[in-house]
Computed example of a mutant assay.
Amino acid sequence: MRTSAVVAVATIVAALSSGATFALVRGVGAMDMGGASHAAGIGADTTGDADVDFARDMIVHHRGAVAMAEAQLAEGDDPELLAFARQVIRDQGAEIEMLETWLGAAPR
């Protein structure tokens, strides 16, 4: 798993340094870092508005992180990772709320 994350980061850095658009980078990140269910939500139904698409994609991304953290709480044993999982749920949950609020107020 770490190898695929390193490859994904390297791919994204290379894409950004070559002037790639956010949409291209978004597809790479979804495929290499989040798995099939994560990829199905990221980049789906793009609006053409970079801000809206970013907010929507980040919500999908954060929900995936929350689901992973909940699985860690249910199955994990390591105190440090359990504490981290609780922090992820708290922090990412707050960010999801902020993004959903922003999307609700975004001019279209």
Rank of each mutant, 00 (worst) to 15 (best):
E100N: 11
V28T: 04
A30K: 06
F22M: 07
V7R: 12
S18V: 00
A8V: 08
V52F: 09
H62G: 06
D45R: 07
R108K: 12
I89F: 08
I96H: 07
R26E: 08
P79A: 15
G48R: 10
G76M: 03
A44P: 02
A106M: 09
E100Q: 15
G43T: 03
T21G: 12
Q72W: 00
T47Y: 02
A83N: 07
G27H: 10
V88S: 05
V66C: 07
G64F: 08
V52H: 05
T47S: 15
V60D: 08
G43H: 04
V60L: 06
D49Y: 04
M68C: 03
G64V: 10
A83G: 11
V88G: 05
T46S: 03
E75W: 01
A71T: 15
D49L: 05
V60A: 13
A83T: 15
G43I: 08
E97D: 15
D45V: 08
G41Q: 11
A50I: 15
R90G: 02
G48I: 04
G48F: 08
T11R: 15
Q87S: 15
A14G: 14
V28G: 04
S18D: 15
P107A: 14
S37T: 12
D32V: 00
F22G: 03
M98S: 10
I12F: 02
D49W: 05
F54N: 01
